[in-house]
Design a protein around this nucleic acid. Sequence first.
DNA 1: TGTACATCAGTGAACGCGCGTTCACTGATGTAC
DNA 2: TGTACATCAGTGAACGCGCGTTCACTGATGTAC
Lengths: 199, 199
Amino acid sequence: MDQVKQKTGYHHGDLRQQLVAATRALVEEKGPDLFSVSEACRAAGVSTAAPYRHFADRTEMLIAVALEGFGEMTASFETALAGHEPGSNDAITAVGTAYVDYAEANPGLFRMMFAGDHQSDALEEAGHGCYAVVLGQVARRMGRAEVDDAVMQAAFPLWTFVHGLAFLRIDGKAEFAKMQTEVRDLVGFATQRLMVRPG
Amino acid sequence: MDQVKQKTGYHHGDLRQQLVAATRALVEEKGPDLFSVSEACRAAGVSTAAPYRHFADRTEMLIAVALEGFGEMTASFETALAGHEPGSNDAITAVGTAYVDYAEANPGLFRMMFAGDHQSDALEEAGHGCYAVVLGQVARRMGRAEVDDAVMQAAFPLWTFVHGLAFLRIDGKAEFAKMQTEVRDLVGFATQRLMVRPG
DNA sequence: TGTACATCAGTGAACGCGCGTTCACTGATGTAC
DNA sequence: TGTACATCAGTGAACGCGCGTTCACTGATGTAC
């Protein structure tokens, strides 16, 4: 539609995106360490040399996938915020719940996004952009115009909690601990308890 | 001393333990997926066929390392409890801090211990034994003789918090979020806030 | 509209490599008499 | 104490395999005239 039309429609339509998709599926299936370029090529129906037209090396393919993940996660935060009063406990709980939901929907990708491997400036920036959504809500909650140290201090325990919940759930530890409480309720509880009282 | 004396003193002294140590070092260095039997053999100065006298396969070597980890973590909990009143906030905070400290001292091992891969009954049991220390403190805190559903409910948010803090720290996200607060203080804060009031 | 040319995405074969596991073996150690 | 034997931990060579990356190439597409 309009001008979009995928910039290049050469031989393959959009091999780069197909490779990213194949890589992502493999990251989910076996993790980033066991992902192989060759297997992604097989999935995309392409020779093993083809990716090198689009990526410098194996690592760049993984970074592309992680970047896609941060974009989606940020978007899911924005979506989750719709209909909640900015800076309310409800809004913060909605973002936290979206965080855990995203991890559960994309466990392999989530693990890779937050593991220290495979750095890049773009990735760092994407991570900051994502966290900025959370920080913005916490700042409002505290009645601050800017994200200052106090906001960072207040937001970190919340991140800690949802990050832990995400990992415990994708690793099956909620069952291990016989904990059936819904994610939203657990995150709501943590938001109430951990959030600094306003003013 | 006494009767201990390592049961077998054959060719190698104790190859099994040497292989476990080598495997553990490699898990730290490159992660469980990139660990290779061959490299562990090189480290132990032994042929690549030697491990198969002691382990059925590669996976069993990793499981042995994870088991060692759970044993150490459980012991570190017991040590941390010494000198604190059983069931006090202090005691619970000490265990939580020991959890995060263990993760930071053994990040690769910690990741492997809690990732869902490589199951085994012994591993499951070791995990339960470790968590039982936490549950015991929470039960006391709540004045219960047994670990019932209420105790499980109360303990889970604490586990969630320290688990999240462990991951954020080993992945360098505390720096990312400019959070310099000491682990003990963060865990203490979470214990106060998340712990159900007694009675 | 038709032709000549430039571009460059994707090919296919090859490279050197390290892997997990198996096998028949050997040789040091422990044991029975 | 000395000899014959059994055990079994560790050897060394081999197996079949898939990997990441390179290279000179080819052939479909886009562009200039």
